[in-house]
Simulated assay, not measured.
Amino acid sequence: MKMNPLGRTGRSVSEYCLGTMTFGTQTSEADAHAQMDMALDHGINFIDAAEMYPVNPITAETQGRTEAYLGSWFAKTGRRNEWVLATKHSGAGVQHIRGGAPITTSTVRDAVEGSLKRLQTEHIDLYQLHWPNRGSYMFRQNWEYDPSSQNKAETLANMEEVLEALQAEVDRGTIGAFGLSNESAWGTAQWLRLSEDKGLPRVASIQNEYSLLCRMFDTDLAELCLNEDVGLLAFSPLATGLLTGKYQNGQTPDGSRKAINGDLGGRVSPGVFDAVQAYLDIATKHGLDPVHMAMAFTVQRPFMCSSIFGATTVSQLEHLLQGAEVTLSNEVLAEINAANRAHPMPF
């Protein structure tokens, strides 16, 4: 498994990252532990969680269960140090987490302590902010995104305060690196500027959605992250299963994410299945498994640090890992780019 630098931290992570957001709803504790074993056996050393997980659905009753499953594996195996462990601080709006409070100096310590307890560890390698307090254009909010109500001075003051709180955690030894998620180019630039001006923790990574069907990262953020050594951690590289082809022709397999969340978080649109078919046709033409092609596309992007995949079942993980060494030819990449131009932003 190829290793990539995690920003300027001096740490290296596998180009595939084990996502865990179904651990605790669709994925049982036993299967979660089996996935962790299998991923390590295949050279994956990077695992990503969040205090709000699991999803499908998100509930107060299950919140934190994903981290708890990771923690029980660490306690059972004693192999915590074999993982680069990432988790996230939830932002404003989740009422059952700190009453829906935004990310502030006062919430950082509480959130870190909660994650450490559930994870049964003393240290989180990469601590991420799940989404900005000021809002985000991710998750299909780009169509009506309007930043005109933002207060720049308040935003920057909050960023500085949060960086100071993160520095306190670094000094305590509870976290190592700091990352963003669902951020914009402007926001990332401000975090970088403040950290450099004030000598506070530097952004190591940004976790945004990226796949054959979602390529918003390709322009401004790609330029910023390449020049500033901030690697992309791509989430939903299989577009919540759309790129597997399992939802084509009106299919909705039992137990699938679409069976639980019918529009896949707004990704099911009038043009999405035509776009998916274009990529399935490319895979068929070149004798590629569509899952392997979709994953290989993400990790071959020059700004990629690691591609975060989720597998509901052990068999899905096994299938995905069979393509870990696939490299796409220039011919395939050219056809992918042509398909992207023909089916831009399908959701």
Rank of each mutant, 00 (worst) to 15 (best):
M1E: 11
N4H: 15
V13T: 04
E15R: 09
Y16V: 06
Y16R: 07
L18G: 05
G19W: 03
T20M: 07
S28M: 07
A30F: 01
H33L: 04
Q35F: 07
Q35I: 08
M36T: 03
L40S: 10
D41P: 08
D48I: 10
A50H: 05
E51S: 11
I58A: 14
G64L: 06
E67S: 08
A68R: 12
A68H: 07
L70G: 04
G71K: 01
S72I: 09
G78P: 07
R80H: 04
L85M: 11
H89Y: 07
G93A: 12
Q95H: 11
G100Q: 08
A101S: 11
T104N: 01
V108F: 02
R109N: 10
R109S: 12
R109Y: 02
E113V: 00
L116E: 02
L116S: 05
R118P: 06
L119S: 06
Y127D: 11
Q128G: 06
Q128I: 04
L129F: 15
Y145L: 08
M159F: 14
E161S: 14
E161R: 13
A165Y: 02
Q167T: 00
E169V: 01
E169S: 06
V170I: 14
V170C: 13
T174E: 11
T174L: 11
G176Q: 06
Q190A: 04
L194I: 15
L194R: 05
D197H: 09
P201K: 02
R202L: 14
V203L: 10
I206K: 02
E209K: 09
E209Y: 01
L213T: 04
C214P: 00
R215E: 08
F217M: 13
F217C: 06
L221Y: 04
V230S: 00
V230F: 01
A234H: 01
Y247K: 03
Q248N: 13
N249F: 12
N261Y: 08
L264M: 05
V268D: 00
D281F: 06
T284I: 05
L288P: 00
P290R: 01
F303Y: 15
M304W: 00
S306A: 14
S307D: 13
S307R: 01
H319A: 14
T327Y: 08
L333N: 05
L333H: 02
L333F: 07
R341Y: 05
R341C: 09
R341I: 13
